[in-house]
Computed example of a mutant assay.
Amino acid sequence: MTAAKHIELMSVEDYLAREELALEKSEYLGGYVYAMAGARNAHNLVATRLLVELSKRLEGGPCSAWNSDTKVRVRTNGYTYLYYPDASVVCDPNPGADVYHDRPVLVAEVLSPSTRRSDEGEKRIIYSQLPSMKLYLLLEQDECRVTVYRRTAEAFDLEAYSGLDSVIPLPELGIELPLEPLYRGIENA
């Protein structure tokens, strides 16, 4: 019988130093590092359009939309997680020298076959540990459909929006988000 192999967990500091020089992004989950897969054009188009629409609607206010190069850090139950969401909205930003934000109000992920399970499960649960987090959006990439998890006093309520004429009310940010600009011209939208 052989002894179990000891796995050395990476520190947050080592991960951040490594990530600064890396050619490919990785996410940090409590000491484990996972490489991120590349995305399809449909995924990137929806994510880019989302970022543009959020930025336009938030302009001049206290909140800003951030792209997928900005990590969100979650510290919970003695563990640290660092994710690269497709988009986020932050109203209380970290200092400019940081490479992550700790207090997003909204986090959005565009679903793909390789990330769906993680985005709908693990990430949703981890992100919900952030006291600042009010909204978690899951956007389909091939059809006009968005699932919204909205924080209430007790939990997160689930809402679904579909069709080009749908508009997501985001009173937490003082804006609305129409789906038509996100999905215009996309197959099955």
Score class of each variant (00 low, 15 high):
S55R: 05
E27D: 06
A47K: 07
D119W: 02
L106N: 03
E154M: 09
N41I: 10
Y34E: 09
G60A: 12
L82K: 01
S132K: 04
S162W: 03
V99R: 15
L54W: 12
S11T: 09
R145K: 07
E143P: 05
K25I: 08
V72Y: 02
P93L: 01
N77D: 15
Y79R: 10
D119Q: 01
P85Q: 12
S64C: 08
L138E: 02
A39G: 08
F156E: 00
L51N: 15
S68Y: 06
S88K: 15
K56Q: 07
S64T: 13
V110S: 08
V148L: 13
T48P: 06
V72A: 04
Y161A: 06
G78P: 04
D98T: 11
E140R: 03
N77F: 14
G30Q: 03
L177I: 01
T147E: 15
E109Y: 08
K56T: 03
V52T: 04
Q141D: 09
P93A: 03
R40H: 14
L106I: 02
S132N: 10
Q129Y: 14
A3K: 13
V52G: 03
S162P: 07
E140W: 01
V74F: 01
Y28A: 05
A42M: 08
R145E: 07
T2C: 02
V167I: 14
E154F: 05
E20F: 13
G61R: 15
H101S: 04
A87Y: 10
Y83T: 07
E172Q: 04
V33N: 10
